[in-house]
C-alpha cells in the first residue's frame, strides 16, 4: 500500500499540469518501480558475478600478457610469449582433453542405471534413503576417500585379487585407468541426481504409449526414456566435465603424479615455479577450451532433445 502513495502523488502533479491521460502515467510509474525492485533484487548476484568472476578473469587475462619476474611472480609487460609457449603444456592439455570427456562419459554410463533404478524401479518410500546413500561419500573428506582407493587399486588390492584368478601383473594404481575409476567414483554423486530428477519427471504414460505403438522395451528406452532424460544427463555431464577439466587432486593421488592434467600444470606453475604469466596463459587457454566445448555440447544437446525442457533443467 505504501508503495502506491508516490505513484498517486506523481499522477496528481501531472494532472494539474493537464498533460497526458492518467492511466498511462500510473502504468509508467509502476513499471519504473518494478524495474528498480528488479535491479535491487539482482544486485547481489550481479556484484558476485562481477567481483568474483569477471574481475579475477580480467586479472588472469592481464597477467597472461606479462612477464615472469626473475624470482618468480609477475611484472607488467605486453608479450604474446606466454601463449607461444603453450605447446610446452600440450601433453597436459591432451591428457585432460581425453581423460576428462572419457571420465564424464563413464560416469554418465554408471550413473544412468543407478538413477533409472532409483527413479523407476524403487518404491517411493526407499527412494530418499537410497538417494542419500548415493550422496553419502560427500560427507567424508575427498582426500580420505582417495587414500582408500589408493589401497584398493594398489598392488595389494584389486590386482592381487585378479592374480588369484590368473590375471597376473595387472597394474591399476598410478595409471590413467586409476584416474578414470576415481573420476567415476568421485563424481557419481554429482551425476546421479540430475538424471534422477529428469527420469522421475518422466511421464510413465509416455512409456506405455510407446509400447502401445509397438515399440519393444529396448526401443522405448532408446526412443523415449533416453531422449527425455537427456537434459539431466547433459546437466550432470556438464558439472562433471567442468570439475574434471580443472581437477588436479585426482590425477595427483590416483595417477601418482604420472598422469599430468592441466590442473597439475597450473599448481606447479603458480605454486612451484611461480611463473604466473605462463600459468595465466594456460588458464586462459583452459577457460577458452571449456567455453567452446560447452557451447558446442549444449548446442548438440538442445538439438537432440526438446528445447524447452532442456532449457528448464
Amino acid at each position: 500500500m505504501a508503495g502506491l502513495v508516490p505513484a498517486i502523488l506523481f499522477t496528481r502533479g501531472k494532472k494539474m499540469r493537464g498533460s497526458r491521460p492518467r492511466m498511462m502515467k500510473l502504468s509508467m510509474t509502476s513499471s519504473l518501480r518494478s524495474k528498480l525492485v528488479t535491479a535491487l533484487l539482482l544486485a547481489p548476484a550481479g556484484l558476485f558475478f562481477v567481483f568474483l568472476l569477471l574481475v579475477p578473469l580480467a586479472v588472469v587475462l592481464l597477467f597472461s600478457f606479462g612477464e615472469r619476474a626473475p624470482a618468480g611472480g609477475y611484472v607488467p609487460a605486453f608479450t604474446l610469449q606466454n601463449y607461444m609457449d603453450l605447446p610446452a603444456r600440450g601433453k597436459a592439455f591432451f591428457n585432460t582433453l581425453t581423460l576428462a570427456p572419457l571420465g564424464t562419459l563413464l560416469t554418465a554410463l554408471f550413473a544412468f542405471p543407478m538413477a533409472y533404478f532409483l527413479a523407476v524401479r524403487t518404491s517411493p518410500k526407499w527412494r530418499i534413503a537410497l538417494l542419500i546413500l548415493v550422496m553419502a561419500p560427500f560427507w567424508t573428506s575427498q582426500l580420505l576417500r582417495y587414500y582408500a582407493w589408493m589401497i584398493i587399486l594398489g598392488n595389494k588390492g584389486l590386482p592381487s585379487w585378479l592374480a588369484m584368478v590368473g590375471l597376473t601383473d595387472v597394474r591399476i594404481i598410478n595409471t590413467p585407468w586409476a584416474v578414470l575409476i576415481g573420476a567415476v567414483y568421485g563424481y557419481l554423486p554429482l551425476m546421479v541426481p540430475p538424471i534422477y530428477v529428469s527420469l522421475e519427471k518422466l511421464d510413465k504414460r509416455l512409456l506405455e504409449a510407446s509400447a502401445d505403438l509397438g515399440a519393444t522395451p529396448t526401443r522405448t528406452f532408446l526412443q523415449v526414456t533416453l531422449p527425455l532424460a537427456l537434459p539431466g544427463v547433459a546437466t550432470g555431464s556438464m558439472l562433471v566435465f567442468i570439475l574434471l577439466m580443472g581437477d588436479y587432486i585426482l590425477p595427483q593421488f590416483l595417477g601418482g603424479g604420472k598422469v599430468f592434467f592441466i590442473g597439475n600444470a597450473l599448481v606447479d606453475l603458480f605454486l612451484q615455479s611461480r611463473n604466473w604469466p605462463f600459468g595465466a596463459a594456460v588458464s586462459v587457454a583452459l577457460v577458452a577450451i571449456m567455453f567452446v566445448t560447452i557451447y558446442f555440447y549444449m548446442r548438440f544437446v538442445l538439438s537432440k532433445s526438446d528445447t524447452r525442457r532442456a532449457a528448464l533443467v
Partner: peptide
C-alpha cells in the same frame, strides 16, 4: 621448472 613439467607430462 620446465624440465620438471616435461618429465611429469
Amino acid at each position: 621448472a620446465e624440465l620438471m613439467a616435461r618429465f611429469k607430462s
